[in-house]
Design a protein around this nucleic acid. Structure first.
Length: 273
DNA sequence: TATATTGTTACACC
DNA sequence: TGGTGTAACAATAT
């Protein structure tokens, strides 16, 4: 499941490899993935060069010459794979970008992901409309900022709150579970019940876990692959996510799973209070 | 063969 | 109004 570290990994890899290169042709195999007729899509992208690639929350932005930007969300099972000219698409390849000597596949098993063609100067507008919260790895995301945000959400349960993109950007089910485990905080605690120490720990672990995950090129619990088609190695570092019934690495208690808002929340009943 | 799973969003409820 | 719950989306594993 691509969250901030996975999207950041793809962003860095694409910047290293395709910045400045030209898109020769686009092939849209599944029209519902894009937000306009394929002819319009192709017309505005083909022949244009890639200026830069950015990340905002879990969104990947590819900026082109000619002032158009592709806004890409990978949702649950999306992939952007940079391959050779001769690589073959699979049945989940829905859009293909052709470069001079490479291809980029947009693959998505569940077809929830999207690629939107947007005028570059309208991207900020679009992101503003999505009400995306602060970027946790930015310098201005301080402990004080975090405390103040929590004050406004005293009645919310902490795990769904960390996953709320309008509260804080880029955190999903995997990393919220890991952050709370390392902080010793139970996923059902209300924001208003957290002590100063709890808040400090959660704040520190948000930065720590996300940075560590980027270092390992993300987590592959589902179909996630990086831009080179490789799995993320943070999967090996996971302590609670997807570990129901396994033994806690700290205390040996069985990891439990509960439902929160219809989603699985994994935690250690002894280490997380 | 039916069901659970999975993130996000839209929408209903209180 | 904010917090919570549910359906829908699609494909797969069980």
């Amino acid at each position: 499941m691509p969250e901030l570290p996975e999207v950041e990994t793809i962003k860095r890899q694409l910047n290293q490899n395709i910045r400045g290169k030209k898109i020769k042709k686009v092939e849209v195999r599944l029209p519902k993935i894009i937000n306009c007729p394929a002819s319009v899509f192709e017309k505005n992208i083909a022949g244009k060069s890639i200026k830069s690639i950015e990340r905002k929350a879990k969104l990947l932005l590819i900026n082109f010459s000619g002032n158009y930007t592709l806004v890409i969300h990978l949702k649950l099972t999306g992939q952007l794979i940079l391959t050779s000219k001769t690589a073959e698409p699979n049945k989940y390849t829905h859009v293909i970008f052709y470069l001079d000597s490479q291809k980029i596949f947009f693959n998505d098993l569940r077809q929830f992901g999207y690629i939107k063609l947007v005028k570059t100067d309208e991207v900020d507008n679009l992101i503003f409309k999505e009400k995306i919260g602060p970027e946790p790895l930015e310098k201005d995301f301080t402990l004080k900022t975090f405390k103040n945000l929590l004050k406004k959400k005293k009645k919310s349960k902490i795990k769904p709150l960390l996953m709320d993109q309008s509260f804080i950007a880029g955190i999903g089910n995997v990393y919220s579970a890991e952050i709370l485990f390392l902080s010793g905080v139970h996923p059902e605690r209300k924001a208003g019940s957290l002590t100063k120490e709890d808040i400090k720990k959660i704040y520190g672990n948000i930065k720590k876990v996300l940075l560590e995950a980027i270092k390992h090129k993300g987590t592959s619990v589902d179909t996630y692959l990086d831009a080179y088609g490789k799995k993320g190695k943070y999967t090996l570092k996971l302590k609670v996510y997807n570990k129901a019934g396994k033994l806690c690495v700290k205390c040996g208690t069985k990891i439990r799973v509960i439902k929160q808002g219809g989603r699985s929340a994994y935690f250690c009943p002894k280490c997380q209070k």
